[in-house]
Design a binder for these strands. Sequence first.
RNA 1: GGCCCCGUCGUCCAGAGGCCUAGGACGCUGGGUUUUCAACCCAGAAACGCCGGUUCGAAUCCGGUCGGGGCUGCCA
Length: 438
Amino acid sequence: MKLRIAPSPTGSLHIGNARTALFNWLYAKANGGTFVVRIDDTDIERSTEEFQKDILENLRWLGLDWDEGVEVGGEHGDYKQSSRFDRYREVANELLEKDLAYKDDGAIRFKVPSDRSIEFKDFVRGDMSFETSDVEDFVILRSDNTPTYHLASTVDDIDYGITIIARGEDILSSTPKHILIMEALDAVIPNFCHLPLLFGPDGKKLSKRHGDTSVEAFRQKGILNDAMFNYLCLLGWSPGDDIELFDSDFAISKFDLNKVLPNSATFDEKKLLWLNGQYIRSTSPNKFEEDSLQNIENQLSRELFNEEKDRLLKIFPSVQERIETMNDLFGQVQFLIDEPFIVDKEDWDSVNSEEAQKYLDAIRNKFIALGDFNLNIIEDTMRATLEELDIKTKVGFQSARVAVTGTKISPPLFESIFALGKETTIARLAESIKNYNN
RNA sequence: GGCCCCGUCGUCCAGAGGCCUAGGACGCUGGGUUUUCAACCCAGAAACGCCGGUUCGAAUCCGGUCGGGGCUGCCA
């Protein structure tokens, strides 16, 4: 069994293509088959090295590997169609000689026989039947002597011994053309499987106008690869038993192309985000720390100081359970970083009051007198002060939060103060007290 | 227009004639917890497009209809 994904390097890896690649990969893995990645770059004008690199990198990021194909090699060269133009021309000429194709203004068209029906069985759609009278004679070699997708893709599928062609439904109606070429070349007809398309929220084929449609974009948004893998699996397929959170081994153990739904699925970013949150929460603390430090350094474009790392490590457990993507991280921990500390003016104004000032002054003095500065002592001190001064929790804590973290939204207060450390906390409290009359 | 595909809550998925007064998840609403925001817990609203037929019995089978989508390129 041999399957393949054949992306065109005319854009960044599209989520729809990623899903198609994923299903091919899963089926190959599930059956001990071979998974091939080839590059369909017959459109020389729009194909670029950068896009090819992006596509391969993102396939790997998703956890997909391939047994044969571009960059990993195999029996068929570099698996790029641009390297095989001679082969396609040879086939086009062969068809010409056999009188199965003809010249048309410099291009070569395949001669579609009349009054025939082309039948094949589709893994997800069952028995398919097309009349050749509905198929036009189609170009296989352009007048600039380059092959079209129909020719190149079909020749490759034959030459590489692909046994199951699983691709997007948008190519379903081109399948008769491919079968016709295969028949003309006396090739064994492989199995076909046309996967449902991915839609945008408006029910149209997912495309750029729906916003981000590339795997790379979501990766940059802080989506975890495992979450993306998991979410993509859920589009058009499910492992059964209402199980929704699973890893690749589980998916492989359950996957079957024949069980893929025939109807198109709408890409729901909200659910992806939720799933991502689940994955962030289930990440081991060590890995979360590692990934987070890296993420923050990327945001800052510099390495973190050791003192910063010490502070961050203290707050990570609290942050891990409240972010949805890795990109939410920075905003949560910014107050712990040695950058200019900015208090949100609006937030401060909304919590500042004479009472708040009294409270901040009181806890500041108590903090100064403290020997140990740990979580429990911080909490005890702050709560006791609330009682002593008869100040409402919300008034005291929210003013302290803004004074220390700069905003009304932050990780838990005591943890934040603990992570910040005694000296800085005292300094920030002093700063806010001084600002009362502003 | 022609050809083709598809049709269960807003969305994703379960359901392969009786187990369905249709189940799970996201989202949404309400409540709980609470120092903010989250997370978490509980509850709730929410769907078999429609019409026929087959059958003792249909979300499940068949036909039609309506709706959505894809293709209709010397793009892939």
